[in-house]
Amino acid sequence: MHLDEIVARKRADWARIAGVPSLGRERPAPAVPGTFAAALRGAEVSVIAEVKPKSPSKGQLLPLERAVAQARSYAAAGAAAVSVLADTPFFGGSPELVGEIATDAEVTVPVLYKDFLVDTRQVELAHTTGADAVLLIVRAVDDALLRDLVQTAEGLGLDALVETFTAEEIDRALAAGASIVGINNRDLQTFAVDLENSARLRTRIPAGVLTVSESGIGGRADLTTVGGHGFDAALIGENLLGAEDTAAALGALLGVQIKEAAL
């Protein structure tokens, strides 16, 4: 399952939807602009830890009934933020799952709403969950829609992590007004991973723009490497989800010993 197929499905689904789907409640509190961005700033590279129930390439990764506990574990072990999959057919998440985690009292860090956004109404839906930020994938949209998505997020008080894979996509992200740029080390067409993609492209992003390296980070050495390239944060999912004790694995990534698993 490649990005083009996923995006085509999303466009078709949202073409059939009238208005913004209701989660049966209003956002518990107004979004505070810059909450997610502020969490990524620090002396060392931060970790955005991901709650991803499944993936097209790896299958089931996390039972849904453990998803909230997983997010709590990440927060307790030192993650700067938690990314939660809102996509159902391909990744097994949902907007409701994002809402559960974003409003959970023990998840004390900002939450990123991660989906394949092709319509500004999806940003509005993300806002209702209580999330602090949304992921936008440059390759999934044209320039005009990318600007609209960034501006819609900003208007609702949400940060936008704008994901890129090539130098040209970085230029498009910056032209759209991105203040947080992610460089994905996974080619979403082939799913091949190359950590050097972050190293090659980091210098294209100017000072003042927050940077996130995404995918392919397997341990503390990799995290130190992307930090050495000047990244503010790294988004890590499958390498944590595959660990026997994810809290301890996250602690090892951060160079902190976790005495008791939070899960």
Results as ranks from 00 to 15, higher is better:
Asn184Ser: 14
Gly242Lys: 12
Ala81Trp: 12
Ala15Tyr: 06
Asp232Arg: 00
Ala133Glu: 08
Ser83Tyr: 05
Pro110Ser: 00
Pro56Cys: 04
His229Arg: 15
Ala15Gln: 07
Arg204Asn: 02
Glu96Ile: 11
Thr103Pro: 07
Gly208Asn: 00
Val20Pro: 10
Leu135Trp: 04
Leu62Glu: 08
Asp194Ile: 04
Leu241Lys: 05
Gly237Gln: 00
Thr152His: 03
Lys259Gln: 15
Ala233Ile: 10
Leu62Met: 00
Asp143Val: 02
Gln70Thr: 15
Ile236Arg: 04
Asp132Ile: 10
Val256Phe: 09
Ser198Asp: 11
Gly255Thr: 07
Gly157Phe: 04
Val138Gln: 03
Leu253His: 05
His229Pro: 00
Lys54Gln: 08
Ala49Pro: 00
Pro53Thr: 04
Thr129Leu: 10
Gly218Ser: 15
Asp171Gln: 13
Met1Glu: 08
Val118Met: 03
Thr164Asp: 05
Pro89Trp: 11
Asp13Asn: 11
Phe116Val: 06
Ala167Asp: 11
Lys10Ile: 03
Leu263Asn: 14
Ala75Leu: 06
Arg186Leu: 13
Arg66Ser: 14
Pro63Asn: 05
Arg72Asn: 05
Ile236Lys: 01
Val226Tyr: 10
Leu112His: 10
Val109Pro: 11
Gly228Ile: 12
Val209Arg: 04
Val84His: 07
Gln257Tyr: 14
Leu149Asn: 01
Leu135Phe: 06
Gly130Ile: 02
Val118Ala: 03
Ala207Gly: 14
Glu5Tyr: 04
Leu195Arg: 01
Asp148Ile: 04
Ala18Cys: 02
Asp245Pro: 00
Thr203Asn: 13
Thr211Arg: 11
Ala75His: 01
Arg11Val: 11
Ala199Asn: 10
Asp143Leu: 10
Leu85Lys: 03
Leu158Met: 06
Arg204Pro: 02
Tyr74Cys: 00
Leu146Asn: 01
